[in-house]
Design a protein around this nucleic acid. Sequence first.
DNA 1: TACAATATGTCCTTTTCAAGACATATCGGC
DNA 2: GCCGATATGTCTTGAAAAGGACATATTGTA
Lengths: 110, 110
Amino acid sequence: MTQTFRKQIVQRITRNFLDILILRLIQTEPMWGYKIIKKTERLFGLKIRHGALYPLLNSMEAKGYLRSQKKTERGRVRKVYKITSKGIELVDAYYDFLKEQLQRLDIKEA
Amino acid sequence: MTQTFRKQIVQRITRNFLDILILRLIQTEPMWGYKIIKKTERLFGLKIRHGALYPLLNSMEAKGYLRSQKKTERGRVRKVYKITSKGIELVDAYYDFLKEQLQRLDIKEA
DNA sequence: TACAATATGTCCTTTTCAAGACATATCGGC
DNA sequence: GCCGATATGTCTTGAAAAGGACATATTGTA
């Protein structure tokens, strides 16, 4: 049961915070879309549809969280993404909130 | 900007993990729907629509996370909810996941 | 030359979700 | 008696999201 709950939580987080997961990955190392798909599958068993990822990456760049550069290597044209300072701010806000959440809610009211 | 990001994260978490927020509240103290609405508004400035809350509470009870008891006090019929052991397990899975997330993703691969 | 893998993109259809309206009942104060 | 607060419930409508198909180009291998 505990394992089932874990899976449920992971699914819900990755569905709703996919953008932040991607930012966290790119923060550790600049990456392109296809690599993100392969990496999340290996690391987390998470299959991101490319039809969901590419529009998301584009919108994240438009919002200023990422910056891309086209790089060609052995005929493969890749859009390599780097995180921006704005992107780092968003990830930090996420981490800060998680820390806050871990402080249990047993605040007694007046 | 940092504050804007915070608000964005809070909104996204509370939209997607409202059930767990409710479980956490009820875990600290048994409660009924109307009180949850008033309490989250006072504590977090979070306005939960009753049209969203009551069906959620019912489905959470159906799933075994909560157990309710009708209590009448001065003519007010309240459905007081208590968290079940299954509900506690779900909350714990959430906390465990948060802790895991806080460990940054700088895992280098082989 | 055909096929799998790499690489990025759009689009449509279905399903899910959120907001607000509709609905009912009691109590206390004016 | 009426209104605001307490208390719980459903339902419809519209918007957002998820899934999968359609689309294209290159490289390496069988």
